[in-house]
C-alpha cells in the first residue's frame, strides 16, 4: 500500500535525473521480467559471479538505487524457505530502482546446486558467490554480522545501511525494510 503510494508520488515529484533513472529502471524491469519468464520456462541457470565483501559495498554505493543484499546457501533451510518471499518483494520494487544482490555462501564446487536452486526460483539476474576467507568477508560486509545465515542487509542509494538482520524473514519484513530504504533514497522535497 505504502509502496504503491510512495512509488506513485516519487514518479510525480522526482527530479529529472531521478525520473530518467526510474524510466531506465522500468525498461530494465520489462527486459528482466521477460527474461525471467523465459528463464522459468527454459530452466535457464543464472550467472553466479564471485564477489568479495568490498565489491558488494562498492556496488551498493554506486547511486543506482536502493539495494537488498541477501546472504544465503543451498544447505541452509531457512535461506531456501525465505527466498520466494524475498523475490516477491524484490520484483515488486524493481521499478522503484531496487537492486537485488543474492550472494551465495556455498563452496565453489556446489555451484551446480546453486544454479539449480536459483533456476527453480526463476532467478535470472546476475547473482554472486562469496570469495575469500569467511572471517574477512563477514567483518568486511558488516561488523555486526555474526556469520549466521541467512543474513539480509538493505542499503539506500547512497550506500547507507538502513536495515540488517540475521535469520529468515517473511514478506512483510522484507517489504518494510525495502520501503524504508527507498524512502531514504528519495527524500520528500520541501513545498515551494
Amino acid at each position: 500500500m505504502c509502496a504503491g503510494l510512495a512509488a506513485a508520488l516519487l514518479g510525480c515529484a522526482g527530479a529529472p535525473a531521478e525520473r530518467e533513472t526510474a524510466e531506465a529502471s522500468a525498461e530494465a524491469l520489462d527486459a528482466s521480467l521477460a527474461a525471467d519468464s523465459a528463464a522459468a520456462a527454459s530452466g535457464y541457470a543464472p550467472a553466479v559471479v564471485p564477489i568479495a565483501a568490498e565489491q558488494i559495498l562498492q556496488k551498493v554505493k554506486d547511486g543506482r538505487g536502493a539495494t537488498l543484499v541477501n546472504l544465503w546457501a543451498t544447505w541452509c533451510a531457512p535461506c531456501r524457505h525465505e527466498m520466494p518471499a524475498l523475490l516477491t518483494v524484490a520484483r515488486a520494487h524493481r521499478e522503484d530502482g531496487l537492486r537485488l544482490m543474492l550472494v551465495s555462501a556455498d563452496f565453489d564446487d556446489q555451484l551446480p546446486a546453486v544454479r539449480r536452486f536459483l533456476a527453480s526460483q526463476a532467478v535470472n539476474e546476475t547473482t554472486y558467490i562469496k570469495t575469500g576467507d569467511d572471517n574477512a568477508f563477514i567483518n568486511g560486509l558488516h561488523r555486526d554480522w555474526s556469520g549466521a545465515l541467512p543474513a539480509t542487509l538493505v542499503f539506500d542509494a547512497s550506500g547507507r545501511l538502513t536495515g540488517f538482520w540475521e535469520g529468515a524473514a517473511d514478506e512483510n519484513r522484507f517489504e518494510h525494510a525495502v520501503i524504508a530504504a527507498i524512502a531514504e533514497t528519495h527524500p520528500p522535497e520541501e513545498p515551494r
Binding site: 505504502c2 503510494l5 510512495a6 525494510a177 520501503i179 524512502a183
Partner: peptide, 16 residues
Amino acid sequence: GVALAKDQAAKSAGTA
C-alpha cells in the same frame, strides 16, 4: 507517503 513508509518500517521487526 514517505512518513507512512518510515512509520511502517519502524514498526517492522526488520529494522536494524
